[in-house]
């Protein structure tokens, strides 16, 4: 596993550089929007990665509720944290794209509003985990995560089932994306998936060590307390 980390780091760096080159140089310029459409190559893969991480959070949370497994609890925390980072990218790059294309930074459109709600749910989840001192925190967080995950399909399918200002799906049924653009999109998604995996891996190890240190510290405090009596 230790040898895999530098390999994954190198692959991620190469894929991110290649993805950036493809997005800025190789991908054809869109006729109506021009160069600003290239934001799509970061915005959409970030959204897909965030959805995937929230799905992992959901599965890990359900596993924790059933089995009370500490590894599942750590995985749920890590996936939510990294998912929030990617969701933040989506919420920042979206308005930067909307300003020149729609003429406004933000509108209370269904897709946009549901994405903001999704972000707020997972930020609340992280705040609960950070500031609650109750021994039941992992259980409460897992329950919140299960309800929070309900918003993910709502966000994803909102543009399929409702008429919204957000652009229609460009991939899958009804999608009309130029194959060269789809190729660049998938390269960037692969790069972001590798980045997410790398960051989750690092964060997971960090959380495991942190919990071990906290355990050792409380044991030390206990022993010191016994010694002073």
């Amino acid at each position: 596993m230790k040898r895999g980390f530098p390999i994954l780091a190198i692959v991620t760096a190469l894929l991110l550089s290649f993805g950036l080159y493809e997005a800025l140089i190789v991908a054809p310029t869109e006729r109506t929007m021009g160069d600003v459409q290239r934001i799509f190559y970061y915005h959409v893969p970030s959204a897909w990665t965030a959805f995937l991480l929230f799905l992992i959070n959901f599965v890990a949370s359900v596993t924790y509720l059933i089995r009370r497994n500490a590894k599942a609890d750590i995985l749920a925390l890590v996936s939510a944290e990294v998912g929030v980072v990617f969701c933040t990218v989506v919420l920042v790059t979206g308005p930067i794209w909307a300003r020149p294309v729609w003429g406004i930074w933000w509108t209370w459109d269904l897709r946009l509003t549901l994405t903001l709600v999704l972000w707020l749910i997972y930020v609340s989840y992280l705040m609960l985990r950070r500031f609650s001192t109750s021994s039941q925190t992992p259980v409460m967080a897992a329950v919140l995560a299960v309800f929070g995950a309900l918003d993910v399909p709502l966000v994803y399918f909102s543009i399929w089932f409702f008429r919204t200002q957000h652009p229609s799906p460009v991939i899958g049924d009804g999608g009309s994306l130029d194959p060269r653009m789809a190729h660049v999109l998938l390269i960037n998604w692969a790069a972001f998936l590798c980045l997410a995996w790398l960051v989750c891996w690092t964060r997971y190890r960090l959380e495991v060590v942190q919990r071990e240190v906290e355990e050792a510290q409380s044991l030390e405090a206990l022993l010191e307390g016994d010694g002073s009596r």
Partner: peptide, 30 residues
Amino acid sequence: MNYLIAAYIATWVIHGTYLTILARKYSKIQ
């Protein structure tokens, strides 16, 4: 073009900030 550059820079600033937070957490644990 300015919007495009702003979006790409914003993406890397967000990821960079998170990685800095992780690095600080790592130093604290050390």
